[in-house]
Design a protein around this nucleic acid. Structure first.
Length: 430
RNA sequence: GUGGGCGUAGCUCAAUUGGCAGAGCAUCGGGUUGUGGUCCCGAGGGUCGUGGGUUCGAGCCCCAUCGUCCACCCCA
């Protein structure tokens, strides 16, 4: 039987690899110029690392295995727990803020669908121990910097943000018990994803108290473009709410200062599932919102502590290659990438052995020329055909002490002395 | 885990009621024994996803299975 790639995984043929590198190199370039430094960890981690962070239900959603000593291991479904583990281990010696990025290969045991695979790459940037609000805006700025680096504009991708903290505190101030808030957040997360009636039904199921429900609805429908509470809920304001509002304001002011306010919009519906977020959260979408989120992130102030470290605030985001790749493709942003050769060396003297060709190719390569050759002895027409197939810029037709440099774009050919050519190949061939 | 669409050459797809598996593109070669690309000609490449069933006969009909795409659940 013939084998094929495992479900949900991709083969990267050279042309696919060129696109992947184009994306990941943009991520790296942008990370570095925004002051982040790269890290990576193992693909295998202890399964408990994810259990502690996300609970038992995570186990069915990732690939896990038991080693021969009985250790329960998992293929990493995200890099943030690894980051937290690594930072915790050296927290006292790392200068803050810690600004790290990574482009890990991740695995999730899910059914593949559009923009969702079992194996993928995800750019992560995180700031640990930075200024609340400002660090969050800096991550958004860096994400937008990457989108622009790849050719996307404010009309093609948009950031929508809200405050998980504000939402939680308003729910509590409206009368919801603290333990019912997480379930409520899950319901609110559905608001923009299901029909209005279905949402009303879900909400009625989640909030049975007739006195509380109108307040929740008022918050969802009345929040202004800045996130401030609608008039009728002003009386709910308490210390935590004021704090969340102040953080939101700092964030917005920073977005403005970074010059990216036109990419970003407050949207009370952004909740980010059941994740570990504790403050500002945001998602990047294609403008038409026909795809799932291109990126998502937010503040997670408890994670280091949950994993056995100190309580240090953190914020970060992840951007996967799958949805981004689809968006770039749809918008026609993907460049035509070819693996071009600078030079292709062939013999102009039929019947000779290949030594002279090999020797010249070796010298050109050492001189920094992207160079390949044909060792075949054939008529020049056939060899030029091969040079053309290989998309070489120049054919180098070697004839004893001299060589013809044929520009395969223009057809122009000049003769040069081989000794002169190898002494400074870039002068002739770049 | 659930539901639906689709599986024919490397790719995109044909194949009449169930009657000899085809085309374009791509690849390789030739036209062209010292000058490529365009052009012309030719070749290789298929257990029709896999297994079973119905039939004189199955790419086509039936069952199962695998894969794939899309959606649901979930989404770190």
């Amino acid at each position: 039987m013939a084998f094929q790639a495992v479900k949900g995984t991709r083969d990267f043929y050279p042309e696919d690899m060129a696109i992947r590198n184009w994306i990941t190199e943009a991520w790296r370039r942008v990370s570095i110029r925004n002051g982040f430094v790269e890290f990576d960890g193992p693909v295998l981690e202890y399964l408990d690392l994810y259990r502690v962070k996300s609970g038992e239900e995570i186990v069915s959603q990732l690939f896990n295995l038991t080693d021969r000593a009985g250790r329960q291991l998992a293929m990493r479904p995200e890099i943030t727990p690894t980051l937290a583990r690594m930072v915790n281990a050296k927290i006292n010696s790392l200068p803050r803020p810690i600004k790290w990025f990574s482009v890990p290969r991740l695995f999730r045991a899910e059914n593949p669908q559009k923009g969702r695979l079992r194996e993928f790459f995800q750019w992560n940037i995180d700031i640990i121990g930075g200024e609340e609000g400002i660090s969050d805006a800096e991550c958004v700025f860096t994400a937008i910097d990457a989108l622009q680096e790849l050719g996307l504009t404010a009309g093609e991708a948009q950031v929508r943000y809200s405050s998980r903290k504000l939402l939680s505190e308003v729910l509590k101030a409206a009368g919801l018990s603290a333990e019912s808030v997480p379930g409520m957040l899950a319901v609110l997360d559905k608001r923009s994803k299901v029909p209005a009636e279905a949402f009303a039904e879900m909400l009625a199921g989640a909030v049975t108290d007739e006195a509380i429900r109108p307040k929740v609805l008022a918050f969802l429908e009345g929040s202004s473009g800045t996130g401030d509470l609608p008039q009728e809920l002003q009386s709910l304001k308490n210390e935590p709410i004021e704090q969340a509002l102040a953080e939101l304001k700092t964030f917005q002011k920073a977005l403005d200062a970074f010059g990216i306010a036109d990419w970003c919009k407050y949207d009370v519906n952004v909740v980010r599932g059941l994740a570990y977020y504790t403050g500002i959260v945001y998602e990047v979408f294609d403008a038409a919102q026909s795809l799932r989120a291109v990126a998502g992130g937010g503040r997670y102030d408890n994670l280091l502590e949950v994993l056995g470290g100190p309580k240090v605030g953190a914020t970060g985001l992840g951007m996967g290659d799958a949805v981004l790749g689809i968006l770039l493709e749809e918008k026609g942003k993907r460049p035509v990438l070819t693996n071009r050769l600078d030079a292709f060396v062939i013999s102009g003297l039929e019947g000779q052995d290949a030594s002279a060709v090999l020797s010249l190719a070796a010298k050109l390569r050492r001189g920094g020329i992207i160079c390949d050759y044909s060792a075949r002895s054939a008529n020049v027409g056939k060899l030029l055909k091969e040079a053309n197939r290989r998309q070489a810029r120049y054919a180098v037709i070697l004839s004893g002490p001299s060589a013809g440099l044929k520009d395969l774009g223009t057809g122009q050919q000049v003769d040069v002395n081989v000794a002169e050519l190898v002494s400074d190949p870039r002068r002739f061939l770049v």
